[in-house]
Amino acid sequence: MAILEGHGIVRRFGSRAVLQGLSLAVEAGERVALLGPSGCGKTTLLHLLGGLDRADEGEVRLDGEDLAAATPKRLAQLRREKVGTIFQFFHLIPTLTARENVELSLQLLRWKPEAIRGRVDELIRAVGIESRAEAWPSELSGGEMQRIAVARALAAKPLVLLADEPTGNLDRASGESVLALLKDLTDRENTALVMVTHSESAASLCHRTLRMLDGRIVEGSL
């Protein structure tokens, strides 16, 4: 069953249609790579799938729920409970330590402190940054920051993880390490992954690859 579906999605910015009637479906636990040149609409699509933006036409369904019909409050709840997001530039909150950044997702869900502690410990071990857990983001390397971002995105056990060029700002070794981590954790937690990337090797870790051009999917099965 598709956990994430899009049908005939159109998104315009002014007179320019960035997405032009695009459709796709992502199964639970499936990893999908989105490839394409800059400006083809990959990031826009990711924002629409995560309920961070609304389509001008068409429909996006997350776990069967139509995002167009959801109120801003409901959208925020869906993002809290069912979506994890990873950014190219990590976007760690600079005033929170590494551990606190991971805690943030669970605090938003109002988990009990003991439960938060357990889950965060587990994730910090899983991403391998136990020794850096109390460090400030400014004290971390790019790879370490992205590991924290992965842990934060997966903390609430989302149904789908949206990753926007997660290795785009990392060196090769760190990038490979983060990709391996993503594969491992999404497998372990049966989380679907939609990953925007320019890297063929990153895409090779996914079950499917969709190629985009000018707001349309031009290659790959939907």
Binding site: L52, K73, A76, V83, T85, F87, I93, L104, L108, L109
Partner: peptide, 8 residues
């Protein structure tokens, strides 16, 4: 980021 994480 906060919005992406589901903060209202």
């Amino acid at each position: 980021t906060l919005r992406a994480l589901g903060a209202s």
